[in-house]
Design a protein around this nucleic acid. Structure first.
Lengths: 192, 192
DNA sequence: ACTAATACTGTTAGTGGCTAACATTTCTGG
DNA sequence: CCAGAAATGTTAGCCACTAACAGTATTAGT
């Protein structure tokens, strides 16, 4: 039928779109997997073949490989936190301009739904791993210091998004992310 | 029967102990809630009255109020990250000496079990909130900078525990926590 | 000590996320 | 066109978790 995308990718997208439509209209908990599958015209088993859990439809994203590349592209002698900061502030505005509304609705859905909020940390871990890989030469293992810094930067990012959603998306997310990194970098000697 | 503790607290403890014994012996996933309840001599409904989910038996801890107090006890004009660091390095060695083995087994169980690891972030959030409260004068709301710093410190703590478990508990956890905070504080200008 | 309120637990019946095993259909390359 | 692979359907079932109601233990008031 459509040669550009495989059948699997198409039903996957149909499932994701149906799920978001229903979640935003009725709330995450009220929508059963069976109904999502029915809405996308497939059986509930097909849903679980594409998404290991109901939560993954919302939580999964694909930005990590890009971030890893951007970090690796920065000069190695720069401080690691500065490399992450630069990668994020380079990549974010682009996707932000293009998907601001979707990003906001998705983040709000996650933060408002206890089951999704509870698993937010897990999806943060994959960003954290991307940061670690970006800071580590291929073949080597990330040092403890790198892992701490990667985790802290992930926390700063998550906090910025949380603040963004809490104030109703009025500020520009990239600005809040900048502020968050500033707070991190000056935390040692700065004032509250 | 035993006047010192209420009946509820006793069954709660029985459930927790039974759960840990079974989890460590057979693995988290292989043990059903029904078996835990049976082992503690109660019905499965009683289990859920004490722990909202199966995961909570493992994830719930009670250290947060103590940390909040310790942070608040530090001079207000010290840098916030230093206040958290001092609170943690003061409180940790005490509980560490007394419960090292239990703390290690619990942490390892969490990190080895996908379902528990996935919800680790949620329990980290409650520590994070304790940090924020400790840094914020009563009646006020935490500033964005405080929230970023609290989240980063939580991430540093979690990372230290992860490193501790990964190397089999050979190092002393308080040392790893010190190192983690050092990495955070020197991240702005240091080298990897 | 007796009783009433309260805290705690049991029973039952169900919902929904998720999996296993096997059959069936749809796509793709030679 | 056809064999193999990829994707999906069907069925049956486990288990975490909840609702509603009933029963039992504990505590408090008098």
């Amino acid at each position: 039928m459509d040669g550009r995308t495989s059948r699997g990718a198409r039903t996957r997208e149909a499932l994701r779109r149906t799920a978001f439509r229903l979640f935003l209209a009725e709330g995450y908990e009220k929508v059963t997997v069976a109904r999502i599958a029915a809405g996308a015209g497939v059986s509930h088993m097909t849903f679980f073949r594409h998404f290991p859990t109901k939560e993954d439809v919302v939580l999964r994203d694909e930005y990590d490989p890009m971030l890893e590349e951007l970090i690796r592209a920065r000069p190695v002698d720069h401080p690691p936190m500065e490399r992450i900061r630069h990668a994020v502030t380079t990549a974010l505005p682009a996707v932000y301009r293009q998907e601001r509304e979707a990003l906001y609705l998705r983040s709000r859905l996650i933060l408002r739904t206890p089951a999704l909020r509870a698993r937010m940390g897990e999806s943060a871990v994959s960003s954290c791993l991307a940061f670690e890989r970006g800071l580590t030469p291929p073949g080597e293992n990330p040092t403890p210091a790198v892992r701490v810094i990667a985790a802290a930067c992930t926390a700063a990012l998550t906090t910025a998004i949380t603040l963004w959603v809490e104030e109703g998306g009025q500020s520009e997310l990239p600005d809040l992310v900048e502020d968050a990194f500033d707070a991190l970098l000056t935390a040692g000697g700065g004032t509250p």
